[in-house]
Amino acid sequence: MFIDTHLHLVSRQLITYPWLTDVPALNRDWTYDEYESTAKRIGIAGVLHMEVDCAPEFIETENALIADLMARPGSLMRGAISSARPEAEDFTSFLDRLDPKVVKGIRRVLHVVPDELSQDTGFRANVGLIGKKGLPFDICVSQRQLELAIDLADACPNTVFVLDHCGVPDIAGDGYKDWEKSITRLAERPHVNAKISGISAYAAPDWTLETLRPYVEHIIESFGWDRVVWGSDSPVCTLNSSLDQWMAATQALIAGASETERAAFASGNAKRIWNI
């Protein structure tokens, strides 16, 4: 049974998502009930909600919605990976307001901001504070920014990091060689983990299992079975697949793993990293 470490829910009547208008295929509400009906069929036993890069004034509203879902009887929801603005002057007070029973981690999407942001001393100091709070920080960068991810990890050695989406490889553009080198270097940092999440979205529409295999295998080879987790990246994965197709592809790609390796990847590592 899997823990999905990367589910996005969209509630447009309550929250504003500035980027959604640029992605018509995703620009609708995506509900927990819709997700749960599939998740329970394909072996998902728990889920973490991943922030959806909402407008900053709605961050705490988004976390409150997840708290409500966690309180439902029989809910799969295990917590929120909250959006945040580590560059903000009031970031410390924001951290202090977070409910540790709900918020299990933090993310600031970095591919939508200038590269210099993650290099700023104040930003890095606040990412260090995230680590002191015992919260992991999800790194969401594009493939060309993987070197920035390495620099950020080096600047914050006491914060646990999780690289989203295998580092967003340019699968459709055949960018494997450059991606491979950067991933190998990033994996040398023991406080960095990797999330194998919805990478079919970065392939061409006619992708096959063999299209994705070298990326998944290199991530596992580089990080090891004790530092990899699984995520659906639903609904972004639906751009080139469905949730159940992504799960089926994952199961096929790890078919040769031992029972211990599969258990660590499917749920054990996630429970440890996010304290769930």
Rank of each mutant, 00 (worst) to 15 (best):
R144E: 14
N193Y: 15
A263H: 13
I66R: 00
N126V: 04
W30E: 01
L135I: 03
R124F: 12
I171Q: 10
D233Y: 06
I81F: 01
P136Q: 06
E188F: 03
D170Q: 11
V162N: 05
W246C: 12
A155V: 13
A204S: 15
A155H: 07
A67K: 15
L239P: 07
D53R: 07
L243Y: 07
L26A: 10
H49E: 00
Y35N: 02
D244N: 10
C156G: 02
E62S: 12
S232W: 05
D170A: 12
I171K: 06
P235H: 15
M1D: 05
S83G: 15
I44G: 00
N158P: 05
E147I: 13
H8W: 04
K181L: 11
T238W: 05
S197Y: 06
R213C: 07
R28N: 09
E60N: 09
V47I: 13
A266F: 10
A204L: 14
A80V: 01
S197H: 08
G128K: 01
F91N: 03
P214W: 06
L76V: 02
Q251Y: 02
D244I: 01
R28D: 08
T21M: 14
F161Q: 03
P169D: 09
I66G: 02
M70K: 14
V10Y: 08
T5V: 11
L186P: 08
L117A: 05
T121I: 09
L148W: 02
K40G: 08
L110G: 01
F137D: 00
S267F: 10
T159S: 12
R97Y: 03
S267Q: 11
G128C: 04
S258T: 14
L135Y: 03
K104D: 04
Q13H: 14
A201K: 11
R12N: 12
S267D: 08
R189W: 01
T31F: 07
D164V: 07
S242H: 05
A187H: 06
I130D: 03
M77N: 00
H218C: 04
G46D: 02
D151Q: 13
P235V: 14
D29E: 07
G198Q: 13
D33R: 10
D138L: 00
L26M: 14
I81W: 00
A264I: 03
N63R: 04
E221Q: 07
E259Q: 14
V216L: 05
V102P: 01
M70W: 03
S11G: 08
R272L: 13
V160M: 07
T61S: 10
E147T: 14
M1I: 03
A266Y: 11
P100S: 12
I44R: 00
L146Y: 12
D151K: 12
G256F: 06
H218M: 06
T184W: 10
N275R: 15
A264V: 02
W225H: 08
S242M: 07
K195S: 11
L110D: 01
E221S: 09
L243C: 03
N193C: 12
I66Y: 02
A248E: 11
G173Y: 13
L7Q: 13
R108G: 04
K177L: 09
A45D: 14
F123I: 01
L26H: 12
N240V: 02
